[in-house]
């Protein structure tokens, strides 16, 4: 009866299609709709500021040193004491990321001792020119009020609000060097971009009273 089975073949194939009709659709209408990204999504970097408006980046080049794609170029310079750019003795005088080379691994974020560089949820960065893919400090640094910059305008494709969503990230070691936390890996699920409070000092106390950050531990 093989001729009969051959006759049924097309119907059996349609059964797969018909079964899917009743199920919810996977495809979304990007860019009209956008998928909710996971908390730890690695999108474009931003350079953050302190609450007082100074830059968090101290030009230490740890991000450039750790970068496996060698896409970050940083040069430090002496911080003018009368009009400080950063909180440290030096600041990031040049800060460039070549987004064509970047593999979005977030090792730079992990290496950064001041939380100056963090990643956001924006990934739409296509350009028509290779040079435009090199993000300079002007593009990366957020405004003193925490508004991020982007070389391209807000559009249907590029939702600049995504730049305000920080990725959650892992901290390799416990904060503040406290013995009680030796070996404990800490997970920071909060969005951390824009103007950020200072990190806690070694004593575990809040360094910046105005930030209202609670001491933990």
């Amino acid at each position: 009866m093989s001729w009969f089975a051959d006759l049924l073949g097309p119907f059996r194939g349609f059964a797969v299609t018909l079964r899917q009709v009743t199920r919810p659709r996977v495809t979304i209408k990007y860019p009209d709709e956008k998928r909710v990204k996971p908390d730890r999504f690695h999108g474009r970097h931003v350079l953050n500021r302190n609450l007082d408006g100074t830059e968090k980046c101290i030009g230490c080049e740890l991000c450039a040193g750790v970068c496996p794609a060698k896409c970050i170029y940083v040069r430090g310079a002496d911080n003018p004491p009368d009009n400080p750019v950063s909180e440290g003795e030096r600041y990031g005088f040049v800060y460039e990321i070549n987004m064509l080379r970047c593999i979005f691994c977030a090792l730079c974020v992990e290496a950064c001792p001041t939380e100056a560089i963090t990643m956001t949820h924006l990934f739409e960065m296509s350009t028509t020119n290779r040079d435009d893919a090199i993000y300079t400090k002007d593009d990366l640094l957020v405004e003193p009020d925490g508004t991020p910059n982007h070389p391209q305008p807000d559009s249907k494709l590029i939702d600049l609000n995504e730049l305000k969503i920080g990725d959650g990230w892992m901290r390799a070691t416990s904060p503040s060097g406290r013995a009680a936390y030796a070996g404990v890996v800490q997970w920071t699920p909060s969005a951390r971009t824009g103007a950020l409070p200072a990190e806690r000092g070694q004593s575990g106390q809040v360094n910046d009273e105005d930030s209202g950050e609670e001491t933990d531990g």
Binding site: G59, C60, E61, A64, G76, A77, R90
Partner: peptide, 9 residues
């Protein structure tokens, strides 16, 4: 040399 570069540069 102060703040000109870091050793890995």
């Amino acid at each position: 040399y102060r703040f000109k570069a870091r050793p890995w540069d």
